[in-house]
C-alpha cells in the first residue's frame, strides 16, 4: 500500500486498483471541530478535481475534491453518526470514501509524505 497527498490537503491510500481518500491531519486541525461530512453516493463517477464531498465545521463548509478519478465503491458510513472521527483520526478511521481508480497515472502528480510535510511547513 502506498500513500499519496494532494495540495488540497487530502490523502490517498492506494491498494491495487482501489484508493481510499480522506483529509489530512493538518486539514482537520485547520478546520476545527468537524460537525458533518457529506460523502458522495456509491456508484458516483468522479473525475479528478470534481466536488466529491463536503466537510462542515461550525463556521465553515469546505469542499473535498476528488484527488483521483474513479468510481465510488464505498463510503465511510461511520462519519454520519460520528463526524468527530475526522478530528480524532483523520488519516485512518476518518476516511471519506473509496474509489476504483480509472487512471493510475494521475497518482504520479501527487506528493509523497515527505513532500507533503515540506509543503505544509511552507504554508
Amino acid at each position: 500500500m502506498s500513500r499519496y497527498y494532494t495540495d488540497e490537503h487530502e490523502w490517498v491510500d492506494v491498494e491495487g486498483e482501489t484508493a481510499t481518500v480522506g483529509i489530512t491531519d493538518y486539514a482537520q486541525e485547520q478546520l476545527g471541530d468537524i460537525v458533518f461530512v457529506e460523502t458522495p453516493e456509491t456508484g458516483a463517477e468522479l473525475a479528478q478535481g470534481d466536488d466529491a464531498a463536503v466537510v462542515e465545521s461550525v463556521k465553515a463548509a469546505s469542499d473535498v475534491y476528488a484527488a483521483v478519478s474513479g468510481t465510488v465503491v464505498e463510503v465511510n458510513d461511520a462519519l454520519e453518526d460520528e463526524p468527530a472521527l475526522v478530528n480524532s483520526s483523520a488519516e485512518e478511521d476518518g476516511w471519506f470514501f473509496r474509489v476504483t481508480l480509472s487512471d493510475k497515472s494521475e497518482l504520479d502528480d501527487l506528493m509523497d509524505e515527505k513532500a507533503y510535510k515540506a509543503f505544509v511547513d511552507g504554508l
Partner: peptide, 11 residues
C-alpha cells in the same frame, strides 16, 4: 449555518 449564504456563498 454552514448551509447559509454567508458561509457557502454561491453554494
Amino acid at each position: 449555518s454552514t448551509r447559509e449564504q454567508h458561509i457557502r456563498r454561491e453554494k
